[in-house]
Design a binder for these strands. Structure first.
Lengths: 203, 203
DNA sequence: TTGTCAGCATGACAAATGTCATGTGAGAAG
DNA sequence: CTTCTCACATGACATTTGTCATGCTGACAA
């Protein structure tokens, strides 16, 4: 029997090691390698591409979504499963656009990971059902590029003046974009706007 | 040989299962039970207290810090190890106050978990060295109770008026506390103040 | 070609936020 | 028993933030 070769990518060492231990208890799966960021993962893959790549999203150097996009292009045979804490429709959409075959939440029971890897290896898609349902009904990102760009900075605590300087806009303009964003998101100030947008995966 | 009995508490199912798999590969450790929040953990403990309790901090129902405090009181023989993502001096201090013998970061290599459990079981303390060093030099929480209370709400996007209503204060008073907090933290608005305070573990 | 619609940009005005001077009482230090 | 300090509380004033009316441009459909 040939085992399914998996490459694990996750920035928290403890979780990475634990997931490896978990997968190694499965008779038909073997952890062929581990990496703690996207760059390291790509280095490993050039030597020997695995059949399935399991990756977190939020990591230093290169996010899992960026990694998925590169893998789709350079290693089209490798299937990608995103494994993340975040149930954000925006992330799911971007993951699927980036060519991921699976999107799984860390909330789910541990048994689902191995099962998802098997399904994806067989050529099926695996998406967390609750999140898929939500994404179906969910409103698409209403923000324009400029609005996103400005809301991001404002949400990090930059003042209107700071943002205006960095983007070479007048303060009035920056305030206006924020006002637009606030209205589009149906909230009442920049703080809530940034929080809501982040929670949906739009920033 | 009698194995060390461990109770694992962690709200993310995937991580919980993976950590259990990891610990079960150790010959001298056995996972006696798992729970996904503080309440469930206490229920299990009343039946059979484990020798070591390993818990995450941020969980629904009851945080790991609250759990540690209850365990110290009701099950003084059980040693507690906090296992968390957050390298926040404020959390460490509170964990030690709550009677935890260990404070470990999920960033660290997987091997350190088993080692930490063994040490704590032997009666030693285990604290992440970098974090311990930082906590030593780190400034203590400069905020008063009122300031914390108000900064928390403001950081969640509540307006001055909302906060004033909820706490039965005048708006001027609320603004003043925020101004004080902003000055104490050396930042320039409520957003940065809340972010900084959170990152230090003060909220 | 001509609407019309969306994103981009601005400034005047209104509303919310931040600062400061001031006052109170409780507890520690002298 | 003062005197000091610190948390708590407030309102007047200054600054920043949010809203609105307005104009420009390019894309796309009629």
């Amino acid at each position: 029997m040939t085992k399914i070769e998996v490459l694990l990518v996750e920035d928290q060492g403890m979780v990475l090691g634990a997931l490896a231990a978990l997968l190694n208890t499965e008779p038909d799966i073997t952890v062929a390698g581990t990496a703690s960021n996207g760059r390291a993962a790509l280095d490993l893959m050039t030597k020997k591409p695995p059949q399935v790549l399991v990756t977190d999203i939020e990591m230093p150097q290169m996010t899992g979504l960026e990694l998925a996009a590169v893998v789709k292009e350079r290693f089209p045979k490798t299937r990608v499963v995103i494994l993340t804490t975040f149930a954000r429709p925006g992330y799911l959409r971007r993951a699927l656009d980036a060519g991921a075959q699976g999107y799984l939440l860390k909330d789910r029971p541990a048994a689902e990971l191995a099962e998802a890897i098997r399904r994806v290896h067989r050529g099926l898609r695996v998406v967390d059902p609750d999140l898929a349902a939500e994404a179906w009904t969910a409103d698409p990102d209403p923000l324009s590029d400029r609005e996103r760009q400005i809301l991001q900075r404002a949400g990090d605590g930059m003042s209107t003046a700071d943002v205006a300087r960095e983007l070479s806009l007048s303060e009035g303009t920056v305030r206006n974009y924020l006002s637009e964003s606030i209205a589009k998101l149906g909230v009442s100030n920049r703080i809530e706007a940034a929080r809501l947008a982040r929670s949906k995966g739009w920033l």
